[in-house]
Amino acid sequence: MEKSLIIVRDYRGAPLRRVAWRTESGLILVPSERACEATESGQLPAIGCPKTDVFAYDADIFDQMEKEWNQNKRVCNDLWTSAMPF
C-alpha cells in the first residue's frame, strides 16, 4: 500500500489526520504523520482502524470536522457522509 494522508474517525467520533501505512488483519494501520518513521522502524506500534472509519483526505472537509469537534465535541453525520471512503 502506498502511504496516503487520510482522515480517521476515532472511537469518540473525533476526526484525526493520519497516514494509511498498510493493511493487516482487515485493518488499516494508521500512524500519525510524526510517528511514521518510528512506526516503520518498529519503535512505535501503529493503530489499526476498520475501513469504515477511514476516509480519503480532503483539507476542506477535515478543517470543517476539526472546527466542529473543537466547538461541540462531535461531528455532524453530514460531514462524515460527505467524506469519500478510503
Score class of each variant (00 low, 15 high):
residue 37 E to R: 08
residue 17 R to A: 07
residue 54 V to M: 01
residue 53 D to N: 09
residue 22 R to N: 06
residue 64 Q to V: 00
residue 78 D to A: 12
residue 67 K to E: 15
residue 50 P to E: 15
residue 57 Y to S: 04
residue 39 T to I: 09
residue 19 V to P: 02
residue 15 P to M: 12
residue 66 E to F: 11
residue 39 T to L: 08
residue 15 P to H: 00
residue 47 I to F: 01
residue 63 D to F: 07
residue 70 N to M: 13
residue 44 L to Y: 13
residue 61 I to N: 07
residue 55 F to T: 13
residue 71 Q to P: 05
residue 72 N to H: 12
residue 48 G to Q: 02
residue 65 M to N: 07
residue 53 D to R: 09
residue 18 R to L: 03
residue 71 Q to R: 15
residue 14 A to T: 07
residue 5 L to S: 15
residue 80 W to I: 03
residue 76 C to E: 12
residue 36 C to Q: 11
residue 60 D to Y: 07
residue 66 E to T: 09
residue 67 K to M: 15
residue 17 R to E: 00
residue 80 W to N: 11
residue 27 L to C: 00
residue 57 Y to G: 02
residue 31 P to Q: 05
residue 20 A to S: 13
residue 17 R to D: 04
residue 9 R to E: 12
residue 67 K to Q: 13
residue 53 D to S: 09
residue 84 M to C: 10
residue 45 P to I: 01
residue 37 E to Q: 10
residue 32 S to E: 03
residue 81 T to P: 03
residue 77 N to R: 06
residue 42 G to W: 05
residue 30 V to H: 00
residue 84 M to N: 10
residue 68 E to V: 02
residue 47 I to K: 03
residue 60 D to T: 09
residue 56 A to T: 14
residue 43 Q to T: 03
residue 65 M to D: 06
residue 17 R to I: 06
residue 55 F to S: 11
residue 33 E to C: 00
residue 2 E to M: 14
residue 84 M to R: 13
residue 64 Q to C: 10
residue 15 P to K: 08
residue 37 E to T: 08
residue 67 K to G: 09
residue 5 L to D: 14
residue 16 L to K: 14
residue 65 M to P: 05
residue 42 G to H: 00
residue 37 E to P: 03
residue 9 R to A: 02
residue 38 A to P: 02
residue 51 K to N: 06
residue 26 G to Y: 05
residue 83 A to N: 07
residue 43 Q to D: 07
residue 61 I to R: 15
residue 6 I to S: 00
residue 45 P to H: 02
residue 42 G to Q: 00
residue 24 E to I: 05
residue 64 Q to M: 09
residue 50 P to A: 13
residue 55 F to H: 02
residue 79 L to D: 08
residue 18 R to V: 04
residue 23 T to K: 11
residue 80 W to Q: 12
residue 39 T to A: 13
residue 38 A to F: 08
residue 60 D to S: 07
residue 26 G to E: 05
residue 65 M to K: 02
residue 26 G to N: 05
residue 48 G to M: 01
residue 4 S to D: 15
residue 62 F to C: 02
residue 85 P to Q: 11
residue 36 C to V: 15
residue 75 V to L: 03
residue 43 Q to R: 14
residue 55 F to M: 09
residue 38 A to M: 06
residue 3 K to R: 14
residue 50 P to S: 13
residue 70 N to G: 14
residue 76 C to L: 01
residue 34 R to E: 12
residue 63 D to G: 12
residue 66 E to C: 10
residue 3 K to M: 15
residue 24 E to V: 06
residue 12 R to A: 04
residue 10 D to K: 05
residue 1 M to A: 12
residue 7 I to Q: 15
residue 5 L to W: 12
